[in-house]
Each structure stands twice: as structure tokens, then as C-alpha cells.
Design a protein around this nucleic acid. Structure first.
Length: 456
RNA sequence: GUGGUUGUAGCUCAGCUGGUUAGAGCGCCUGAUUGUGGUUCAGGAGGUCGCCGGUUCGAACCCGGUCUUCCACCCCA
């Protein structure tokens, strides 16, 4: 039988030792920051009931859900009508009731509602797990990728928003990434703009259109708005908003005037101002933070502040995003619990750091020393040495065969092991061993105890 | 989901208007060097040209389908 050719499912990747070392380095930094801000870990299943997932991400999102075929004879419940019409959309609920999670926020909301009794509010959790989207893959866009989320539910305090900004700053500072911007806006401001344009409640289409601003330009945005049913004077009303620029203070002052006729809009602005004041209150300057009233991104469940982080020196989509959602737990029967959160897209951050060569060399984990294997008897005696090294916390390994030294050297080098220990017959006779630094080529003779203090 | 694009050795890529045994560099393996790698030299292995089908006397090359990659749209981390 011909062997089948191995391959990966579209949009998925394997992560080798080097990649995993770097990914763990990223996870470690993000986790440490989350914990420092008082967030506690949580994990939820990869698989959720489709009823939990659908209707939370908008029509587009629903389309991108990976659905799981029912176990067993999944066709027995499929209706003849849908079968003969080959109607995929209406037959889906008949043959699939589970799906892969699309993000971590909705499963979190589900968890909160199911476990209200366990937690006192506000509840702060972080969650680092993969999510799946049946999107068409591109650079920085995968079908399986990890999100690193931190969310607070059960408080309306804008302190949470301010702390999110600080966490973003700290994570990227620790990663050595300086070229990025944190864009901040508020859904209520967008609602206000829609209201002033004479199309209250239509912030959805408005968002979609103005989000394309830097791609297609003002004129095309206006055209699109017209197509989507905005009135003729809508464009004129929108223009001044699009032209706002300058410092955050200038933009706030501008918004103050422009939004004067909209109660929601002013509410959103007040929230923005408070977040800015709180960030300032921490005594930390966040130069990357920029208020952008045209920032429209975010899933459909956002209702207040929205965030987006983009690298500025690398061609890449957002590497971090989030916002406040007032009604998510309400969809599962627990109303009046507001939440706000942030999600770091580790796979994109990885690509950005890789492109900018920002991974420290030490981020690759490997043994500190390789004990050369000269012959069976010496190898046997090396085992005690190996134990002693490991007892003292030194990652060490013995080459498993008495291969040629050249081969053992090559092995150590390719694995990035910095030291090679010569442990043959004569060394054991003397009780002293040659320790060679593979990078410098320098070799010195030590007793086992000296080796330990040398390598620690 | 729509339109386009890519696919040749482990890696980066050549391969003329279809014409015999498909090449290079790097890497890998062996030896020079029976216990000291990274340099040098000598040799060697490795490809059903993404997959399936079609046209043709003959296909890596042309055509169709499919998968994959990347790009645009859509949306997003």
C-alpha cells in the first residue's frame, strides 16, 4: 500500500522546539503581566454548543464558525426537504450541534453565568488558549491561533480600561517592541455620530464604512454610506469627524463641539476622557495611546470603549484588540453585568517580533551541557555526574551512544548546547574533566564540583 | 464565501518556443582526522517537478480539476 503523503490542514501549523521556546517566552511575559494586575487563570473547552456561539459575532462571524458533525448516525435527523434542496444553511442545525470556539470572551461569559455562585464580582480572569476561525488564511491570519485574554466582569469602572492600557504598554515594553500604536475609541461616540448623521442605530454599517477610510479614501467611504442608505447630507456631517487630528487633547476638544447634539456621543466622550485621566493618574506616560474616533473595529458585542493595537513598522493587522461589552452575560440570562477585556494575538506578535529580530537568543531552551560519550564504561560512570548536575538544576544530557566525537560536537552545536564535557577513561582516572565552551573553543579542566559552580 | 496568485532536492531558487539520463548554491552523509566540532580538501546520498486527469509520438513546461501558499475583497488576532 502506498504511504499517504503527510500534510497539515489549511491554516494550521506545527511548532518546532525553537518556535515553542519563543512562544513560551511570549506566553510567559503576558501571563506574568496579567497576574501582576490581579487576573486569575481559567480554561474552557475547545468545543462549545453551537447555541452558545452563534449570534454573538454577527453574520460574518457565524459563517466563520467551525462546526462539528454530530457523532453517530448524524444523517438520521436530517430532513428530506433540506436534503433534496441541498440547503446547507438550514440543514446545519439538523446535523451539527457543537462547534469550535471562535474567541475566548463568549465562552468566558458563558462560564461566568454558569458559575455566578463561585465568584465574587468583580471577577478578573485571564485565559490563554487556541481559537478557530474558518477564514481564508493569509499572512498573519490563521485558522487556528492563540489568544491571550484578560477580562473583568461585574464592574462599570473605567479603571479597568485604564489598566488595560497599562498592561498593553507593559507587555510590549517587556518584549522590546516600541513601534506600535494603541488606538482608543468608544462605541457610544460612533453611535453619536450615526445619530447626528440622521441614522440612529446604524453605527454598524457606519463602522464598516469608515473602517476602510485609510484604504479607499473619503470619497469612496461616502459612496458606500450612500449605498447603505445614509442620507445625502450624512457625508457632510461625517466629514468634520474624519478630519479631526492632532494631540489627544485637541481631538477631545474637537469631539466636544462636534458631538454637542448627541447625548450618547457625549457619554462616550466622557468615558474616553475619564480613561485618559486615570491613565495619567497612574503617573505613567503612554506615548503610544491615541484617541481615534474612526476606529471602528471590534466584534459586534462591544458597547463602550474599544481598543486596537497595531505595529507601525511592520505590515501586519492588529496584534491586540478588545473593548467593553455590556450585554454578553445577558444573552445567557445574567443581565446588568458589564465586562471589559483585551486579547493579545500571540501568533501575529510572534511574526512581528520575528520580522524585527526581537527574540532574545536565550529564549531557546536547551541543555546547558552535553557529556561526551567515549565508551560504554565511561558512559556508565558519567551517569552519576549527570545526576549531580541535574540535582543542582543544570540542564544536562549524555550523548546516548559512543559515536565519533565529531558527531557529538555537531549534535551539541545544532542543538545550541553551550558546553561539552569530556568524560572518558583518563578523566575518570584523574577525577578531573575537560569542559569546553563550544562558542569560544576554550577548554579548562575541572572537578565535578567546580563544573557545577562554573555552569550554575 | 468571491476574484487572483504560488507550488521543482531538507532550504533558497535555475530550468530557453513542449524534445532523451531535471540542475546550482547552501545544508546533509562518508573519508582525510582510532578521544576535540565550527576551516579546507576528496567523495556520496537525496526529486513519481503539489496531487489527479486530459491534449500530444513525447509534458516540469500546454489545458481542466483539486489541494496548498500568498494577495485583494469581506472580516479579524
Amino acid at each position: 500500500m502506498a504511504a499517504q503523503k503527510p500534510g497539515l490542514a489549511r491554516g494550521t501549523r506545527d511548532f518546532g522546539p525553537v518556535q515553542m521556546s519563543r512562544r513560551n517566552y511570549l506566553f510567559g511575559i503576558i501571563r506574568a503581566v496579567f497576574e501582576k494586575f490581579g487576573f486569575q487563570p481559567l480554561e474552557t473547552p475547545a468545543i462549545e454548543n453551537l447555541s452558545t456561539l452563534t449570534g454573538k459575532y454577527g453574520d460574518e462571524g457565524d459563517q466563520l464558525l467551525f462546526k462539528i458533525l454530530n457523532s453517530g448516525d448524524f444523517m438520521k435527523n436530517a430532513s428530506d426537504a433540506n436534503l433534496s434542496e441541498r440547503n446547507s444553511k438550514s440543514i446545519t442545525p439538523e446535523i451539527s450541534e457543537k462547534g469550535l470556539r471562535y474567541d475566548l470572551t463568549v465562552p468566558f461569559a458563558r462560564y461566568v453565568v454558569m458559575n455566578q455562585h463561585l465568584h465574587t464580582f468583580p471577577f478578573k480572569r485571564y485565559q490563554i488558549q487556541p481559537v478557530w476561525r474558518a477564514d481564508r488564511p493569509q499572512k498573519g491570519r490563521y485558522r487556528e491561533f492563540f489568544q491571550c485574554d484578560a477580562d473583568v466582569v461585574g464592574t462599570n469602572s473605567l479603571l479597568c480600561e485604564a489598566e488595560i492600557v497599562l498592561m498593553i504598554k507593559e507587555v510590549f515594553e517587556k518584549l522590546g517592541l516600541a513601534d506600535y500604536s494603541i488606538k482608543l475609541n468608544n462605541r457610544k461616540i460612533l453611535s453619536g455620530i450615526a445619530e447626528l448623521m440622521g441614522a440612529p442605530g446604524k453605527e454598524g454599517p457606519l463602522c464598516v464604512a469608515i473602517d476602510k477610510l485609510d484604504k479607499i479614501g473619503e470619497e469612496k467611504v461616502f459612496e458606500e454610506l450612500k449605498e447603505r442608505g445614509f442620507g445625502n447630507d450624512a457625508a457632510e456631517k461625517l466629514k468634520p469627524f474624519l478630519q479631526l487630528s492632532g494631540s489627544n487633547a485637541t481631538i477631545i476638544a474637537g469631539l466636544e463641539k462636534l458631538l454637542a447634539g448627541s447625548e450618547v456621543g457625549l457619554l462616550g466622550l466622557a468615558e474616553l476622557k475619564e480613561v485618559m485621566i486615570m491613565v495619567e493618574g497612574f503617573g505613567i506616560k503612554v506615548d503610544q495611546l491615541a484617541i481615534d474616533p474612526t476606529l471602528a473595529r471590534g466584534l459586534s458585542y462591544y458597547t463602550g470603549c474599544i481598543f486596537e493595537v497595531k505595529p507601525t513598522s511592520v505590515q501586519m493587522g492588529s496584534i491586540c484588540g478588545g473593548g467593553r461589552y455590556d450585554d454578553l452575560t445577558g444573552m445567557f440570562g445574567l443581565p446588568n453585568v458589564s465586562g471589559v477585556g483585551i486579547s493579545f494575538g500571540i501568533d501575529r506578535i510572534y511574526d512581528v517580533l520575528d520580522e524585527l529580530n526581537l527574540f532574545p537568543a536565550e529564549s531557546v531552551r536547551t541543555s546547558k551541557v552535553l557529556i561526551a560519550n567515549f565508551d560504554e564504561a565511561s558512559a556508565m560512570k558519567s551517569l552519576v555526574v549527570l545526576s549531580k548536575l541535574r540535582e543542582r538544576g543544570i540542564a544536562a544530557e549524555l550523548y546516548p551512544e559512543s559515536a565519533k566525537l565529531k558527531k557529538q560536537f555537531t549534535y551539541a552545536e545544532s542543538k545550541g548546547i553551550p558546553y561539552l564535557l569530556m568524560a572518558g577513561e583518563s578523566e575518570f582516572a584523574l577525577g578531573e574533566f575537560g569542559l569546553k565552551n563550544l562558542q569560544s573553543g576554550e577548554q579548562k579542566t575541572f572537578t565535578v564540583d567546580q563544573i557545577i559552580s562554573e555552569l550554575r
